[in-house]
Design a protein around this nucleic acid. Structure first.
Lengths: 329, 329
DNA sequence: TATGAAAATGTAAACGATTTCATTTTTGAT
DNA sequence: ATCAAAAATGAAATCGTTTACATTTTCATA
């Protein structure tokens, strides 16, 4: 495999000149530029990123931390990140943490070892203390989920308001007994969405009923099924359920159908995220659309700014309530 | 940020010794080893991958080429690849090609530029000629989809047989008018699956009817809906449909439901891949289970072998027909 | 033609590790 | 105490770039 030395020799110039041609500097005469380009072609030369990266002290790789690749919610965000990254000559390393601090640490090590130039974290279970410490030395952005008040820039939506609007929609179409399917309140978004839920109820003069609040361990389909099973067994059964994730909602949908009940006739369902599949279910799912692609591009731009040493501010993006069949009663 | 020089000075030894400690070589006395480890701790030293990678002429990164991240089919495979990769100290770069030769080439460049040590390609639309050429110099494995006879090791299942068994199942439960929802036959797997379809029919004395064969541009949900719309409009409507991807099948399911027909009563449906969502639909989907995780681990092991310069043979893995509600009539 | 500024090119030092080969130190047997 | 073999350590080259600085060439002008 040819290196820059050989190209230089072959073209009868110095390596500096070759490098200049490579990097499109305009201080090279067109004659020599031609010679060099010819040599490059003849030797089939491809500059090595290894040498270049060492010299420039950068890896041109950014890390994306997600709890699991199985939740389609992240896919659109990733696409957004990727497009911006690529156009800035960065590549992305997708890191599935399983919300496991051990695995997480393997990935943190990558930036410590200069294998990566920065991190976009979407893992709500991330070790906040470690992240904070890391952020002092490295470029880090939080996306979608964030630890509040730890000084790391984030991009997100107004979860409280989004939840409020979702529940308000259920109230407006006549529901009063509305269950909440939430995750562990150690997550900020879970706390915020519960607050929105409560605010909407209060506004309609309804007291929050703790029997109607269910916590799931994860955001998966099965978790939704299990929680729904419990809800269906309540003596005073709710007529609507708001799940904080589409996967939960789809699990709920499945369970309701399986028990012979009708959606939205017997039970209205609202999800959260607007993943692709929320439109493929029967009935289609009413859900809160997060601007996922936009979140991705925004986070990526912020990260690149940060890598370049600039200060960046957090961003709160708009959401949208998408009303579909599962509440169209 | 401390480097190996500073650690050496701080510990009062040479860089060679520090490097030896770093790499766990046993030629270092325990006294000096202690000194070095102390220095490392005190200086908060983390060895730079940039230096190491240049010296070792490797990036410890492998590329995964997939047409789109939106098809969950790839997720399990990726997990398999990732686990093996991580345990061998490799990291994976997920590359979405959109089946676009231009984008593809960007990623090929990464290995030419030594940014990556090898490629696992899952893109059926990959430019076979380029891939073949690349494979002469770099480590490449094909996974799931492969170009036949181009000498690049692959891991896959027996698509013809899998398709045969799926269709045979439909025949056995009494269907005779079976539609095939396929993709473009430029893809090897599409041709193979059609052959299996034909063989099953023939075996039951049924002549293949071209009016029952539909081609979709992609493997997405919407493609399935559109194709199903056409199928439902046929004058002599089939009673079953075999789709070569779960996403297609789920699209079909949706369309059938929407038109007021019942699955499997009016129309049985069989998919392919056993993605997570095939179990979340209503009714659940009969499908051909590919051993995706195993495919991933196998491909990863093969690639690592290849990177190390060893010869590897192609592998054909087992599949399984999973019978669920959509054919349980 | 000589001159000086501007343009083009070259030299050599980084970047941060690993490793070969040479050298020093330790060890154990005599 | 001596010595050879074994063990531990170090010096310096190397991986392949980029770039600051020095040097040479070009070219318009006097």
């Amino acid at each position: 495999m040819a290196n820059i030395q050989q190209v230089a020799k072959h073209a009868g110039v110095s390596v500096a000149t070759v490098s200049r041609v490579l990097n499109g500097q305009n201080t090279v005469s067109s004659k020599t530029k031609m010679k060099v380009e010819e040599a490059i072609k003849e030797l089939n030369y491809e500059p090595s990123m290894l040498g270049r990266n060492l010299r420039n002290s950068e890896s041109r790789i950014v890390l994306i931390l997600i709890p699991t690749i199985s939740n389609p919610f992240y896919l659109e965000i990733i696409k957004g990140i990727e497009n911006i990254a690529i156009s800035h000559n960065y590549n992305i390393l997708l890191c599935e943490t399983d919300s496991d601090p051990e695995k997480e640490n393997i990935y943190f090590d990558l930036v410590r070892k200069k294998m990566a130039d920065g991190i976009i974290s979407m893992d709500p279970a991330v070790n906040v203390e470690t992240l904070k410490q890391l952020a002092e030395k490295y470029a880090i952005i939080q996306c979608s989920e964030y630890g509040g008040g730890i000084g790391i820039p984030y991009v997100t939506i107004d979860n409280e308001e989004a939840s409020y609007r979702a529940v308000k929609h259920l109230l407006q179409i006549g529901h009063t007994k509305i269950a909440l399917m939430n995750t562990d309140e150690k997550f900020l978004y879970a706390r915020e969405r519960k607050m929105g839920y409560e605010r909407a109820l209060k506004e309609h003069g309804i007291e929050m009923n703790n029997n109607y609040i269910f916590y799931t361990k994860d955001l998966g389909f099965e978790n939704g099924q299990q929680a729904m099973k419990k809800i269906l067994n309540l003596k005073e059964r709710p007529t609507a359920v708001f799940a904080v994730s589409d996967l939960l909602a789809i699990g709920a949908l499945k369970e309701i159908n399986a028990s012979g009940l009708n959606v939205p006739g017997d039970m209205a369902v609202v999800g959260f995220d607007k993943i692709d599949f929320s439109n493929m279910t029967n009935p289609t799912l009413t859900t809160v659309a997060q601007p996922m692609y936009k979140m991705g591009t925004t986070a990526a731009k912020m990260l690149i700014e940060k890598i370049q040493g600039n200060k960046v501010d957090s961003v709160v993006l708009d959401f949208e309530l998408v009303i579909r069949e599962s509440t169209a009663g």
